[in-house]
């Protein structure tokens, strides 16, 4: 029951961010879907006592893979799906606590929370990039097409 509530609300949450970032109208439900999958995986990992940094990494990894699948399916840039997809994982609450601790002159807690926020956002970024690179490697085996990062590198090489 708890899981279903989380699923529904993370879907609405991410879809709303799709609207704020002005995603194409027909892509908005899929943005919500990407975010809901990423959040549910994060949520379940937290429930079984995985640390928040690792859970964020895996959540962002899944978000990027699902976003890549949708991007190929709809022939739209991947950025449309993964930007709103990672929003539920962004450590907004921890960043807020950092600010609050520093304003209240509790510097020790402030540094601790700041480090946590930094590690989580680093994990999210790494998850996104790793997923993209792994998909590129897979595509190399199947030869079905190039991702933009790969064709960019190839175009640069050809110029030399």
């Amino acid at each position: 029951m708890e899981l279903i509530i989380q699923l529904i609300f993370s879907f609405i949450f991410t879809a709303c961010f799709g609207i704020i970032f002005n995603a194409p109208t027909k892509a908005i439900p899929y943005c919500g879907f990407v975010g809901a999958i990423g959040w549910i995986i994060y949520y379940m990992l937290i429930q079984i006592n995985v640390t928040e940094v690792q859970a964020s990494f895996i959540g962002a990894f899944v978000v990027a893979i699902v976003a890549q699948i949708f991007a190929r399916r709809f022939k739209m840039p991947m950025i449309i799906f993964n930007v709103s997809g990672i929003i539920p994982l962004v450590p907004g609450g921890i960043a807020y606590n950092t600010m609050r601790n520093i304003v209240e002159l509790d510097y020790t807690m402030g540094i601790q929370n700041g480090m946590r926020a930094f590690m989580i956002s680093g994990a999210i970024a790494m998850g996104l990039v790793f997923a993209e690179v792994i998909i590129q490697l897979m595509m190399k085996f199947f030869k079905t097409g190039l991702t933009s990062m790969q064709s960019f590198a190839r175009a640069k090489r050809r110029l030399k």
Partner: peptide
Amino acid sequence: AVMPLVPGLIITNAVR
């Protein structure tokens, strides 16, 4: 309430 203001896109793009 501040979540809609958070620069999510810029951070992601910066790292990429």
